[in-house]
Simulated scan of single mutants.
Amino acid sequence: MGLSVTISAADAADAEHILKLQYLCYQSEAELYGDWSIEPLTQSLDDLRAELAEGYGLVARLGDEVVASVRARLDEDGTVRIAKLIVHPRMRRHGLGGRLLDGIERHFAEAAVQPAPSPKRFQLFTGHRSEGNLRLYRSKGYAQVATRELGPRLTLVTLEKVAA
């Protein structure tokens, strides 16, 4: 019998697994842009733990293995900043990225019912050559709102979606 993927809230105990997966997943981005100094590859375990404590994260598990993750936080202006949506290379093209994106949006929409700021928009960014990422985000209703050139090889594309 096969295992199914489950999605749940990330906690401090997941941090080391997420960091290892992040390092694996961002190798292809580093190669695409010729830059192995990108923040996801240099982030410390303590910084990742702080991100989880300050915001909210999800993990997808296949059995006990963390195979995908995403993190986000709600700013004072009502923007949910989504970051580091990662899926293990062997698990890509199975809808996990979309499920995590839906899950993080749903979490912040439901959290708004409590005495918390309501999200006005969801925002994320990716590199201009990351076609798979851009395709996923656009299919989920995100539209490009800005670009920022970080150097001769990398332009960040910021995409946004109005919260329901």
Rank of each mutant, 00 (worst) to 15 (best):
V70N: 03
S118C: 10
C25W: 04
T155S: 09
K84R: 14
Y26R: 13
D46S: 08
G78T: 06
S139G: 15
E65Q: 14
A60N: 04
V59M: 04
V87Q: 04
M1L: 13
Q27V: 15
C25I: 10
A163P: 10
G97S: 07
D77G: 01
R138N: 08
G55I: 03
V67R: 10
K161Y: 05
D102F: 06
A111Q: 13
G151N: 14
A12S: 13
V70H: 03
L24C: 10
S44D: 01
G2R: 13
I38Q: 04
G141V: 09
E65L: 07
I7G: 06
F108M: 05
E31S: 15
A116T: 11
S118W: 01
G78M: 06
V5T: 15
G98F: 09
Y33Q: 12
P89A: 13
L52W: 03
R81A: 05
V80R: 05
R148S: 08
D75W: 00
P89E: 13
R148Y: 00
N133W: 03
Q43G: 01
L100P: 09
D11N: 14
Q27N: 12
S118N: 07
A9K: 10
L159S: 03
L136D: 08
R106G: 02
R61M: 03
L41D: 04
L3Y: 12
I18P: 04
K20V: 12
R93K: 15
K161G: 07
H107W: 15
A111I: 02
G141P: 08
A30P: 12
A111T: 06
Q43C: 06
